[in-house]
C-alpha cells in the first residue's frame, strides 16, 4: 500500500478477535473452587468476552486465560460464591 487509493472502503481484519490476547490486560484472575461450583454455568452465561469455556455439559467451567480480562462479572454473578478474584501478582 502506498497511497489512500490502495485502501479498502472500511477496515476489516482477516482474523477474528480470538487472535487478540486480551488476557494480558488482566489484573485480577477468576479462580473457580470446584468444591463449591454446582456447574450451573451462570458464569458462562454472563461472561461478556466468551472467556468461560464449557467443553461438554457436566464439565466444570474453565476460564480461558488468554482472553479473560478479569472484569469479575462471573465472580459477582456466581450463586454459590465459587469464584474468587485473585490479584495476578499474588499468584505464583
Amino acid at each position: 500500500m502506498e497511497t489512500y487509493r490502495d485502501l479498502p472502503q472500511s477496515t476489516y481484519s482477516l482474523q477474528t478477535t480470538e487472535s487478540v490476547r486480551t488476557g494480558t490486560w488482566r489484573t485480577f484472575r477468576p479462580v473457580i473452587d470446584t468444591k463449591k461450583c454446582t456447574r450451573c454455568y451462570t458464569c458462562w452465561k454472563f461472561c461478556p468476552d466468551l472467556s468461560v469455556d464449557v467443553k461438554e455439559e457436566g464439565d466444570f467451567p474453565k476460564v480461558d486465560l488468554d482472553h479473560c480480562k478479569g472484569c469479575g462479572i462471573c465472580a459477582n454473578e456466581c450463586p454459590t460464591g465459587a469464584i474468587t478474584m485473585l490479584r495476578e501478582d499474588t499468584i505464583c
Binding site: M1, T3, Y4, L7, Q9, S10, T11, Y12, S13, L14, Q15, T16, T17
Partner: peptide, 22 residues
C-alpha cells in the same frame, strides 16, 4: 469469521478519513 472495524494505526488512519471526504 473476520473482524470488522478493526484498529488502524496513525500511519493510515488519516487516509481512511480522506477517503470519506472523497
Amino acid at each position: 469469521p473476520r473482524r470488522y472495524g478493526s484498529l488502524v494505526m496513525p500511519d493510515w488512519a488519516m487516509e481512511f478519513r480522506y477517503n470519506n471526504y472523497l
